[in-house]
Amino acid sequence: MSKIAKLTKCEIIKMYSRGAVIGFICAAIVVLAMYSLYLKEYEPQFFNSSKMGNWRNYIEQEANYTISLLNDQSIGMTENVRIQYINESKVYDYLLRHNIPPIAEDTAASMVLKANNLFIYIIVCIIMISCFFITSEYSNKTLGRLVMSGASRWKILTSKYLAILFFAIVFMLIFAVFTVLCSWIVFGFDDFSTHYVYFDGVKVVERNVMVQMMLNFLYNTVSLVSISSLAVFVAVLTKSNLIGMSLCFAVSVFGSLFSSVFAGTDWLKYTLFANTDFSRFLNNEVAFDNYTPAMSLGVLGIHTIIFVVGAYTVFCKQDVVI
């Protein structure tokens, strides 16, 4: 086994032997269970299973209402809202033409799609764990011992980085599995054969619910890699758990809000703030005109490279305080 593989294995064991990490995973399951119950008991449901019998009627009504809104000149509709209604009517048209019923909001299929809203919880956990995982080596003064373990410093940081990414992916998988389990327990068994239809900004897309959920998680993984890199960089740079976490939270949690508020500012799309939620492209919630996933991926990639190079430079050059 190579030195990096041995070090990574050791880091993964270290990570999972901490109570806090297991605590985050258990808390994720609790959050999912509570969110499922909230959706069932308190979330307003416009289209539920009871209306499934005459769903075509319901969709036709919705489509007609949307068209009437678009035709009503007295409504001072902004261009963005207008486009949104046009896209909605395209989806309604697609559903009716292909005889695809919409997803009832009181079903497990609806729950697995809405679980994407809880991705922020995963982000928060990953930031906390990444920062703590790096800064605790400084606060425990154990970094010196690791540096002397017989591997170059870049290998030590790589092993930590890989352990964090491994944890992030495992956490996402656990989250995905428990999303399905919780939705089955709360809403009843569903084989997820239902199809989800939406407008992706260019065309109407029809996709299996399960595939859509997996894509949501996959797109979120892109954001997660970038956020993890930022967390590692900030932790190495500041060596402070508190500063590291605060900075990462500010970028990831408030970043989306910030970019929505300043959506009109075109240059903002090149900042990390505007790109932390990559799954927006799946749901056509992009705040900037002519902004493609490839462009966002490029911006995230450049930021990730800057963070990784920065982290390695600082980690490999700085003297270790003992």
Binding site: L7, C10, M148, S149, G150, I322
Partner: peptide, 30 residues
Amino acid sequence: VEKLSYSYGSENLYPFYDACENIRSLLPLK
């Protein structure tokens, strides 16, 4: 550094691990 060992005091151990776990975690390549 493969065959070099440096002991620099006592406050450089994982407080939440026992002795064996500390040894395994801090000497991963030995």
